[in-house]
Design a binder for these strands. Structure first.
Length: 490
RNA sequence: CGGGGCGUAGCGCAGUCCGGUAGCGCAUCUGCUUUGGGAGCAGAGGGUCGCAGGUUCAAAUCCUGUCGCCCCGACCA
């Protein structure tokens, strides 16, 4: 039915690309590795953004905006930070173009005195700014978030999952004590978990990254990890406890109640348009995108069916009535009254685009006071009366939301294994993939060895670990305090 | 940076081996018939064949160079 979508079974990666294209979410731009986010994709992002933004505000944060350009010298102030990002920075070196024989060229005389970095993340510019804002413990905490674009010069890109430029939010907070900063880090991780599970219907594991997977400049990195349909993991969000690293690098101090001068404690946390990639790979099928009702730009689409003007008048009057009733319940409902497309075409298109519910109304329905209601997630249809329809749509959307989540949890459960030996680990990894719990001796060396040999990484040490029992490392046989979560990842 | 693929109408492609009037499907425009799962018929418009050289009477096609994008890997959110 979905004639332009490669089945997942055949080529998962091509399926993903096809979904992005056919659901009109985004397209490639002329520049390598960057994309145009189309209205369908952007309104989805807006819904995600609005939900998150509300949660940030509810937890006491305010939005601000810091510049796109960062002086090159700032990057080098925190040693690990620069080390982590140095290889993927876009650098602005000149400020003018001039006409040349073959078009335009860079004007050599416009060379910048200090080159500028296009932000790959904003810790440096923000901490340079915070220095001026903080003198006393009375200035703390500072709880700020920004919605912005960032640029990371990636070698290999994939629509939404990894592009050179992407949209995200980055929270940057400053605290008087270590405990308070850690509390903030964990609080925001929890916000992400709730958002992923309740809005995206995407179950996640919360955990802590190992040293090698830690954010450049962080003392500790927390994350939410999701599992995609193909058994690969996706890091869906991170929350970092930055310790005093940036405060020290940018000399941000405050005078405490006891009169002493202390360095500030910091956190940062972010999620990006990558979440859209996660959303696609959690729910969608071979017929196209499937969107959770809470985030779907259109929750219900209504399709009129008629043969002539007389029927059209009746059908449209009937639809307008239902539309008004649904709209008044605060639902995002749309009437697809375009006349250049036939109903069948519209059915197919809205399915590809992932609209959770479709209501079709034709002359027969008007006659009988009915409507045909179709669910995108289960592809089931039922005929209901108009009054029923108006009553059941809202609870049905909730049911779909819940059902998508349950389905994803079930899928994750099926793809989660516990292994006791390295042999078994490799076998499970190759045969079914997914999340694998295993014992690890805690050393970066063993972790690197596993990664080299199997391409699997430690996704996290789960916070709420179901496998806390002690044991012995599957590779070295050394003692292990608890199992950790492995997977091949995006 | 390695491996693979592709640049021909808005989109998807054929034509390239073997040089000789630039084609097909979808989309678009006009008209009529249609409308409960991607409508049918008739007609029409739309191209510096990625770019630059070269060979030739003649190049989408052969030769040389060059640019770009996509996919797969190494690195990363």
């Amino acid at each position: 039915m979905a004639k332009n979508i490669t089945p997942r079974e055949k080529d998962y990666s091509q399926w993903y690309i096809d979904i992005v294209k056919e659901a009109q979410l985004a397209e490639h731009s002329p520049v390598r590795g960057s994309m145009v986010i189309k209205p369908n994709g952007y309104s989805l992002w807006e819904n995600m953004r609005d939900a998150l933004d509300k949660m940030f505000k509810e937890t006491g944060h305010q939005n601000a905006y810091f510049p796109l350009f960062i002086p090159k010298s700032f990057l080098s102030k925190e040693a690990k930070h620069v080390e982590g990002f140095a290889k993927e920075c876009a650098v602005v070196t000149h400020s003018r173009l001039i006409n040349t024989e073959d078009g335009v060229g860079v004007d050599p005389s416009s060379k910048l005195e200090e080159e500028l970095i296009v932000r790959p993340t904003s810790e440096t510019i923000i901490w340079d700014t915070y220095r001026g804002w903080i003198q006393s413990h009375r200035d703390l905490p500072i709880l700020i978030n920004q919605w912005a674009n960032v640029v990371r010069w990636e070698m290999r890109t994939r629509l939404f999952l990894r592009t050179m430029e992407f949209l995200w939010q980055e929270g940057h907070t400053a605290h008087a004590t270590r405990e308070e900063a850690i509390e903030e880090t964990e609080k925001m991780l929890e916000v992400y978990r709730v958002f992923a599970e309740e809005f995206m219907a995407m179950p996640v594991i919360t955990g802590v990254k190992t040293e090698s997977e830690r954010f450049a400049g962080a003392e500790n990195t927390y994350c939410i990890e999701a599992l995609m349909q193909d058994g690969k993991a996706l890091q869906a969000g991170t929350s970092h406890f930055l310790g005093q690293n940036f405060a020290k690098a940018f000399d941000v101090t405050f005078q405490d109640k006891d009169g002493g001068l202390k360095h500030v404690w910091a956190t940062s946390w972010g999620v990006s348009t990558r979440l859209i990639g996660g959303l696609i790979m959690t729910h969608s099928d071979d017929d196209g995108l499937i969107l959770p009702p809470k985030l779907a730009p259109t929750q219900i689409v209504m399709v009129p069916i008629f043969k002539n003007d007389e029927e059209k008048a009746k059908v449209m009057a009937y639809i307008d009535e239902v539309y008004a009733a649904l709209k008044s319940q605060g639902l995002r409902v749309k009437v697809d009254d375009r006349e250049q497309y036939k109903p069948g075409w519209k059915f197919a298109q809205h399915e590809v685009e992932g609209v959770p519910l479709r209501v079709a109304v034709g002359p027969r329905d008007v006659e009988n006071g009915n409507a045909e209601l179709a669910r995108r997630d289960t592809k089931t249809k039922q005929v209901v009366t108009k009054d029923e329809l108006i009553q059941i749509v809202k609870p049905l959307l909730d049911e779909i939301q819940q059902s998508l989540f349950n389905r994803a949890v079930e899928h994750r459960t099926n793809l989660t294994s516990v292994v006791s030996s390295y042999e078994e680990f490799k076998e499970v990894l190759d045969s079914k993939g997914g999340f694998i719990y295993a014992h690890w001796d805690g050393t970066p060396e063993t972790e690197a060895k596993i990664k080299d040999e199997t391409k699997a990484t430690i996704r996290c040490i789960p916070l709420d670990n179901p496998h806390k029992e002690t044991g012995f490392c599957m590779v070295t046989g050394k003692p292990s305090e608890q199992m950790v979560l492995f997977a091949r990842a995006y």
